[in-house]
Every structure is written in structure tokens, then in C-alpha cells.
Amino acid sequence: MSNRHTISQTSPDARRGITVDLLNRGAAIGRIQLHGMGRQRDIDVVLGYASTEDYDRDPFYLGSTVGPVANRIADGKVALASGTFSIGINEPSRSNALHGGELGLHQQLFQPSPTSDAQSLTLSRQLPHLSDGFPGNRLVTVRYELTDATSLQCDFAATTDRETVINLANHAYFNLGGRLADHEFRTHLEHFTPVNEQSIPIGTIASLVGSELDFRQWRRLGDSVLDHNFVLRKDNKLQKAASLRLHDTQLQLDVLTTQPALQVYTGDGLTAPFSARAGICLEAQAFPDAPNQPGFPSIVLTPGRTYRQRTIYRFTELSDH
């Protein structure tokens, strides 16, 4: 069984194209290569390792599907009707379970579907009851599809045989071909969730207006340190959440999603073989610590229902004007 799979798509006039490498481990994105776009004409816009084996020791969730519950859970505690469940704390300095804990999806081997084609791939993973601390025998599925020569669509799905919690996201680090400080960033959102010293939301939703996080208009990232959750509309319809652009390479990335929130992380914790702030994560997901925050949208999944979320990474070329 191959550990790396490639999907690709070319425009009808063959002038543009996109090639994406996908990995079994973590159902991860290993490469997004753009062809015929921007000044470099051929560029990989996500951080990745040189070999598949390097992902076995990856501490940064590079390109991975993170979960079963992405982001942070305070004290690793999840309270459900059937009881309270403990998830391994893997952010000890803050006493949090992060991205599913030590046994999260980022270190799980997914099974590729034998029915994949040149433009799409489906990867799935069975999670036994309590194998990672979370309840339920669960089936997690991630489908990647190149809907055209400039767009990667990610569809997340999950089912369970007993009440559990699910919050899936992708953790790719994007860089459009230059210093992160020179990238410009814009959210298409109005609110965020303030956090305490442990980076856990305090339970309120605040306006971006007048805050350091007010990226409602294009702003250069500069030395801004972001690891914050931005709030989307509550209608679960596909909407544009944020955009990233770099004039030096004439490239722009738009993130569209059905998820209720977007965690933006400027990669300040990256170390060798990368450098701090080598890329930015735009993690479409549910709210952090949702199981312990009654005022936040629920991430509870019950038997007979299917969790479904969609995120699209769409690339465009900037004009010279």
C-alpha cells in the first residue's frame, strides 16, 4: 500500500494546473503545487517534509487532518450524558488536550479508497471505542477533490455508534512564496472568541472592531502573532472565511467553509527543520473547548447522524494593477 498519493487537475487550455500529494498518515496534505500561476509559475504553497518517514516524527501536525476534536480541550475533560471522559494532555504547559491528544488523527494511518481517480482521493479510519479517550466506535472519512485547476475541496465525515464529540480540521501551513511578514491577510468575519492564559476561550464572543485582530480589511501580517479563533455565521452554508495574498508572487488563497469558526495560527512555534513563522494555518473547524462551553455550538455526534463539513482552498492570480 502506497503511503503517498497524487491527484492533479489541469485547466481546459492546459495553461494552469494543480498537483496535490496526500498521505495515509493523518490523511495529510503533503504538497499543493501550483502550475502556471503567479510570478514563479511553479510553486509549492504548503510546508512539507522531504520524505514520508519524516511525518512519523512530526510534532507540528503538518498538513494533517486533526481530531477527533481539533483545537484545545481544557484539562482534557469531555462531559457527556454517558459520563466524563479524559483525553491525554499533550500541551502540559497549559493543561490542555490539543488536536485529539497524543493519539490524535494526525498519527493515525488512514486507508485509501480503491475507487480513487486522478482528481480525487478518499481516506478513512476506524476508531475503536475509547482508543483515544473519546467514546464511540467511529468511522472518520476525508475526501479530497480537485474541483478545477485552482481549487482543492476537503470533505470531512464521521459516524458513531454512541454519543461522542467530533470536530475535524486540516492543519496545513500555507506560504505563497515569501516571508510570512510580507503576506497580507483578510478575514471576512466580524467576531472572535477571547481566551485566557491557557488559550482556552472564556466563553464570550467579541467584536473584532478596535482589536489587534481586526483584519476585516487587507493588512500586512508583519509581526502579528495569531493563534485565535474567528467566528463565522451560524447558517452552516459554504462561505468565504479568510484570504491570504502575496504581491511578490501575485498569488492569493481564499478559504471557504461550512464550519462555524476559523483558527488562524501564524506558526510561531515552528522549529527545525522549519523556521518560526514559515507558514500560516487557516484551520476551519468548530469552536475551541466546545464540549466545556455551553454557549458555543455543540460538537456532539449521536448514532444515526453523520457529521459533515466542507472546506475549499481556492487559489487565484493577482493582476499587476
Rank of each mutant, 00 (worst) to 15 (best):
L98N: 09
N71Q: 04
I87W: 08
A74I: 09
A81Y: 07
T52I: 15
T52E: 15
A81D: 15
V45S: 11
L23N: 07
Y55A: 03
L80S: 08
A74R: 15
S82Y: 01
F85E: 08
R72C: 03
F60E: 12
I18D: 08
R31G: 02
G30E: 02
G101D: 10
Q108N: 06
L23S: 05
N90I: 09
E91K: 04
D21V: 00
G38Q: 09
G104M: 00
R72I: 03
L62H: 02
G48Y: 04
L103K: 12
S93C: 11
L34V: 00
D44N: 15
A50E: 15
F60K: 06
D58F: 01
R57T: 12
S82R: 06
T19E: 14
M37Y: 03
Q33N: 11
A50K: 13
A81N: 13
G30T: 01
I32L: 02
P92A: 01
L47V: 05
N24K: 10
E53S: 01
G38P: 11
V78C: 13
E102S: 09
A27H: 06
I89W: 04
G83W: 08
S95M: 12
S93A: 15
G83C: 03
D54H: 06
G26L: 07
Q33Y: 05
A27V: 05
V20W: 06
N96M: 11
S86A: 12
S95H: 14
L80I: 03
L109G: 08
K77Q: 14
A70G: 06
A27L: 08
V46T: 14
R72P: 03
L103W: 00
D44W: 06
F85Y: 15
L62E: 00
G38K: 09
